[in-house]
Computed example of a mutant assay.
Amino acid sequence: MSEENKNVTIYWRQGCGFCARLTDAVGELADKATWRNIWEDDEAAAFVRSVNDGNEVVPTVVINGEAHTNPDPQTVVDALSAQ
Rank of each mutant, 00 (worst) to 15 (best):
A67L: 00
F47M: 08
Q74I: 09
P71L: 03
E40L: 12
A45V: 05
F18Q: 14
A45S: 12
T75H: 01
P59Q: 00
A82D: 13
W39E: 14
V8Q: 11
K6H: 08
G27M: 12
W35A: 02
T69D: 04
G54I: 12
V62I: 08
D53Y: 14
V58S: 00
D31K: 10
T75D: 01
E40N: 13
C19V: 08
T69I: 13
D78W: 02
V26I: 12
E43M: 07
M1H: 15
I63Y: 06
V8P: 09
E43V: 11
L22M: 14
I38L: 13
V76D: 03
W35S: 04
E40R: 13
A67V: 00
C19Y: 05
Q74V: 10
V51R: 04
R13F: 08
G15C: 12
E56G: 13
L80Y: 07
V48C: 07
H68N: 04
Q83D: 09
P71H: 02
W39D: 15
R36T: 05
V61G: 08
N52C: 09
T34K: 11
A45D: 10
N5F: 02
P71R: 02
T9Q: 06
I38P: 10
G27H: 14
S50Q: 09
K32G: 01
N37G: 04
A25G: 02
A20Y: 12
V8A: 12
D24H: 14
E4Q: 03
T60K: 03
A67D: 00
A33W: 00
N70R: 04
D78T: 08
A45Y: 09
V48H: 07
S81E: 07
E66L: 03
V58N: 03
T75Y: 01
K32D: 01
R21C: 10
A67M: 02
C19N: 06
W35C: 04
N5Q: 06
N7L: 05
T75I: 01
C16H: 02
A33F: 03
T23H: 13
R36L: 09
D72H: 01
Q14M: 09
R49P: 01
W12T: 14
D24F: 14
Q83Y: 10
T23G: 10
S50G: 09
R21I: 13
G27Q: 13
V61K: 08
N70F: 00
R21D: 11
N52M: 07
W12G: 08
A20K: 15
A44I: 15
A30K: 15
D42I: 11
G65S: 08
Q74M: 09
Q14K: 10
A79P: 05
A82L: 08
L29A: 14
